[in-house]
């Protein structure tokens, strides 16, 4: 029976959440502008492969991260291009790309499977790392993990506190109205689909160069893209709540490692698939929290209402829609 050291536990949650957090934030940005990038799962694997292989060939992890980000941006641009210019369903194109990007990663990456490659080590921040507890939890990570932390605030600030963010959200809510206000919705959607894709790509590279170093088939990142997509809904399209969801998920992941040690009689397969029924359950709760009958019932029960409120969030109104402006 393993003992739990709280600061080590929290530190590993923050590190483990980094890639899924980056992907969730990226998808939140993309969906806020009205585009669903369903290709996340494949996109993450392909950029993980690209990041690892480029870093291996050039010997520079920075180049690896750039390559990963570029691949993520490219896949997202494909989804946006098919939707905006070719008027095709975002869900269809995204789904095809999910499968295709994964196969592409396996095909091109197979010679580099199980090869020892470069990885990002921790870079503690001087002075701050000395703070008791907090230093250990937050300030002794690698740079991608710091990036994920900074991105939470940055994405929120950009979306809700800058004029650009306002334009981005207006396009996601009502492209025709934004067009009338002199905004080019197509250009905005393309721009933010790519921006979100860059973050998704960084998530992939963070996997293969930092959190689960190396490349293989399977890489170990399979399925996280879908979790990230569900976390965007969990977050109610708000980056702060989405981040909270990512940390909760990472916490459960870390805890499942402990559980496995405590109850060896439960087969490992149960822990591997456990996140997915949990994902469904949470989506059911979110959907119920928005039902009118339940909202009415909760009206004179302040605690329930407050609880329900934390679960509600509305999707951008033009999400996934084909636009003709």
């Amino acid at each position: 029976m393993g003992e739990i050291n709280i600061s080590i536990l929290l530190a590993s949650v923050i590190a483990g959440a980094a890639p899924i957090l980056l992907a969730t934030l990226g998808e939140t940005v993309t969906e806020k502008s009205g585009i669903i990038n369903l290709s996340l799962d494949g996109s993450i694997i392909l950029s993980a492969m690209a990041g690892f292989v480029i870093a291996l060939k050039t010997g520079s992890v920075v180049a690896g991260f750039l390559a990963g980000a570029m691949i993520g941006g490219l896949v997202a641009a494909t989804v946006a291009f098919f939707s905006i210019s070719l008027k095709q369903s975002q869900v269809a194109v995204g789904f095809v790309l999910t499968l295709m990007a994964r196969d592409l990663a396996y095909f091109i990456g197979s010679p580099y499977s199980r090869v020892q490659g470069p990885q990002v080590g921790p870079s503690p921040i001087p002075f701050l790392e000395g703070i008791p507890y907090l230093g250990e939890i937050i300030f002794r990570h690698s740079i991608p993990v710091y990036l994920s932390l900074v991105m939470i605030g940055l994405v929120w600030w950009y979306l809700y506190r800058t004029p650009y963010g306002l334009r981005l959200r207006s396009v996601g809510e009502h492209p025709e109205a934004s067009y009338a206000r002199g905004i080019n919705p197509k250009r905005v959607q393309m721009l933010y689909a790519v921006c979100g894709g860059l973050l998704v790509g960084l998530a992939g590279a963070t996997f293969s160069l930092c959190i689960k170093p190396g490349w293989g088939q399977p890489q170990g990142a399979e399925g996280t893209g879908w979790i990230a997509l569900a976390l965007v809904i969990f977050g109610g399209w708000n980056p702060l709540r989405a981040a909270l969801g990512a940390y909760l998920f990472a916490f459960l992941q870390v805890m499942s490692i402990y559980f496995q040690g405590w109850v060896p009689s439960v087969p490992a397969q149960v822990f591997q698939v456990a996140p997915f029924p949990l994902m469904i359950l949470i989506l059911v709760i979110i959907s119920f929290a928005q039902k009118e009958s339940i909202l009415r019932w909760s009206e004179d029960r302040p605690i329930v209402r407050a609880l329900l409120k934390t679960f509600t969030g509305t999707a951008p109104r033009a999400l996934g829609r084909q636009q003709n402006t």
């Binding site: 269809a92 095809v96 790309l97 499968l99 196969d103 396996y106």
Partner: peptide
């Protein structure tokens, strides 16, 4: 000595090309 996942790449590309 290539990976067999090339078929998946071709199939996916085919659907995208057909849509385009």
């Amino acid at each position: 000595q290539l990976d067999s996942s090339l078929s998946g790449v071709m199939q996916g590309t085919m659907v995208l090309a057909a849509l385009a």
